[in-house]
């Protein structure tokens, strides 16, 4: 009996230790983005493919390069001082001749394959269908803003009579 209680306490301690010390290490850390980027402000001036320039042509949508940004940002255009402070970072990158260090999110599992071109250009699906209201956001997310599951993908594929063959996405 005493032994059982001892074991129980030991397990509880171990559990508590794991919960308090080990597990938090795996807590998803928000990624530091190089600047406070407002999708909303940009979406008012441009379209999705204006900055994600490869979305209609390639599997990857692409994150904007400094060159893409400077195509529009010719000098400081923001009105508010706090926005100008962000915009000035572009000037600094240009002076230092380095790319914008965007922190992209880990992509899909390595056996899952996805093509933006297939969905956005060929099947003409609105970006918001999957990316929800990202166009309304005022800052860049530090964590993935939504979770894609196979069930969720399949629901749409079935509804649209797209391929539900395993090899369409898994190889």
């Amino acid at each position: 009996m005493g032994r059982a209680v001892f074991l129980l306490i030991a397990v509880a301690f171990l559990g508590a230790f794991l919960y308090l010390n080990v597990l938090p290490r795996f807590s998803p850390q928000p990624r530091a983005q190089p600047m406070r980027f407002s999708h909303k402000a940009h979406f008012e001036e441009s379209t999705c493919e204006g900055c994600h320039v490869y979305v209609m042509e390639h599997g990857a949508a692409g994150t904007p390069t400094l060159e893409n940004c400077l195509d529009c940002h010719d000098g400081l255009q923001s009105e508010k001082a706090e926005d100008q402070k962000e915009e000035e970072k572009l000037v600094v990158y240009e002076e230092e001749e380095r790319e914008i260090p965007w922190a992209p999110f880990p992509r899909l599992a390595s056996h899952v394959f996805f093509s933006h071109r297939r969905h956005a250009a060929v099947s003409e699906i609105e970006c918001a269908t999957c990316h929800e209201d990202i166009a309304e956001s005022l800052t860049l997310p530090g964590n993935p803003p939504y979770e894609f599951t196979m069930k969720w993908c399949l629901a749409c594929h079935e509804e649209q009579e797209a391929s539900t063959d395993c090899v369409a996405c898994h190889r």
């Binding site: 795996f26 807590s27 998803p28």
Partner: peptide, 28 residues
């Protein structure tokens, strides 16, 4: 997955994560 805390999801991901993982679909 949806029922467990995000920490556990990350833990599982770390276990299963592939060494040869692409950074994302590439520009061809």
């Amino acid at each position: 997955l949806l029922l467990v805390p995000s920490e556990i999801k990350e833990l599982l991901r770390a276990v299963a994560d592939h060494k040869y993982q692409w950074p994302g679909p590439g520009i061809e």
